[in-house]
C-alpha cells in the first residue's frame, strides 16, 4: 500500500508538472490584445503613435500589417490603405473624419508546435472633431511703415485648444461690412481665395494672412484714424476623394487698418 501510495504521489507531481508545462505553452500562444495609442485621443492636426498592445507572454510575432481608412460624415469610406508593417505606426488627424486603424498580426511558429497561431485582427477608431475657432498668434498691433505689408497669423483651434500642425485643406476668408475711408462701403467678398494663394494660406496648423494698407486715401485719413475696416469670416475648405466639399467654420473677427502716424500703420481688432 505504501508503495502504491508513493507511486500515486509521484504521478500526481508528474501530472501537475505536465499541466504546468502545458499552461506555460498555452500562455506562450497569447495573441496581441489590441492597439495602444499615445496620446489616447486624436485631435485635429495632431498625430498619434500606435503600437500593438502586447502582454509579457505574447507569441513571437512574424509581422504586423497596419492599414488605415477614413469614414466621412455622409457614411462613405476610403478603401483600406496599408501604412506599413513595422512594429509601430503614426496616424495623422488631417481632416475631421473618423479614422480607423487596422492591425493584422501574423505570428511565428513555436518550436514543438505543429502550426503557428492564426493571425489576429484589431481595429481601433478615432473621431476627429472639427476646428471651430482661431486665436491671434502674431501680426496684430505692430506698427509698420506705409508701403510695407505684414502677415497676420492665426492658430486654428477647437474649443479654445490649439489644433496641431497637420491640418489639411485650404483656408478661406469672406470680408463683410467693408469700409474704406475716403471711398465708402464696398460689397462683401465671396469666399476667397478660390485657388491656393501665397497671401492667404493654411500651413502648420496656422492661417497666414498677408495685409497691406490702401494708400489711395492716405492723405485724407486723419492721424490717428481708420484706413479701412471689415468683418473677416474664416473657414477651412476641404474635399473628400469624391470631390464633395466640406467646410470648418472658424468664426469671425473685426479687422481694422489704422493710420498711427504720418508714416506708420497697423492692424487691430
Amino acid at each position: 500500500m505504501i508503495w502504491i501510495y508513493k507511486i500515486s504521489r509521484y504521478d500526481t507531481y508528474t501530472v501537475l508538472f505536465v499541466l504546468l508545462l502545458i499552461s506555460l505553452n498555452l500562455s506562450a500562444f497569447a495573441a496581441v490584445l489590441g492597439i495602444t495609442s499615445t496620446p489616447v485621443e486624436l485631435l485635429l492636426g495632431n498625430s498619434i503613435y500606435c503600437i500593438p498592445n502586447l502582454t509579457g507572454n505574447t507569441s513571437p510575432i512574424s509581422s504586423t500589417i497596419w492599414s488605415q481608412r477614413k469614414i466621412f460624415s455622409n457614411g462613405s469610406a476610403t478603401p483600406w490603405q496599408v501604412l506599413g508593417n513595422e512594429g509601430q505606426v503614426v496616424v495623422y488627424g488631417e481632416v475631421p473624419v473618423t479614422y480607423e486603424l487596422k492591425l493584422v498580426t501574423i505570428y511565428s511558429s513555436i518550436p514543438g508546435m505543429p502550426t503557428p497561431p492564426s493571425p489576429t485582427t484589431h481595429i481601433r477608431a478615432w473621431s476627429v472633431m472639427e476646428a471651430n475657432g482661431v486665436r491671434d498668434e502674431s501680426g496684430f498691433n505692430q506698427e509698420i511703415p506705409i508701403g510695407n505689408s505684414l502677415e497676420l497669423v492665426y492658430w486654428v483651434q477647437r474649443g479654445n485648444q490649439d489644433c496641431g500642425p497637420y491640418i489639411s485643406g485650404m483656408a478661406q476668408e469672406r470680408l463683410t461690412n467693408r469700409f474704406l475711408t475716403g471711398y465708402g462701403q464696398l460689397p462683401s467678398t465671396s469666399w476667397i481665395p478660390q485657388y491656393p494663394s501665397p497671401t492667404f494660406r493654411l500651413g502648420g496648423g496656422r492661417i497666414w494672412d498677408e495685409h497691406s494698407a490702401d494708400t489711395t486715401y492716405w492723405n485724407i485719413v486723419p492721424t490717428p484714424g481708420i484706413i479701412s475696416s471689415a468683418i473677416q469670416e474664416l473657414r477651412i475648405a476641404w474635399d473628400d476623394p469624391w470631390s464633395n466639399h466640406y467646410y470648418q467654420n472658424l468664426g469671425s473677427k473685426q479687422i481694422v487698418h489704422r493710420k498711427v502716424s504720418s508714416t506708420n500703420w497697423q492692424v487691430t481688432h
Binding site: 471711398y183 464696398l186 460689397p187 467678398t189 465671396s190 476667397i192 481665395p193 478660390q194 485657388y195
Partner: peptide, 16 residues
C-alpha cells in the same frame, strides 16, 4: 451696383 473682379490668377480684385 458694383462688380467683383479677379486677376489672371483668379485672385480677388476690388472694382471701385
Amino acid at each position: 451696383a458694383m462688380a467683383r473682379g479677379t486677376d489672371a490668377q483668379g485672385q480677388h480684385i476690388d472694382i471701385f
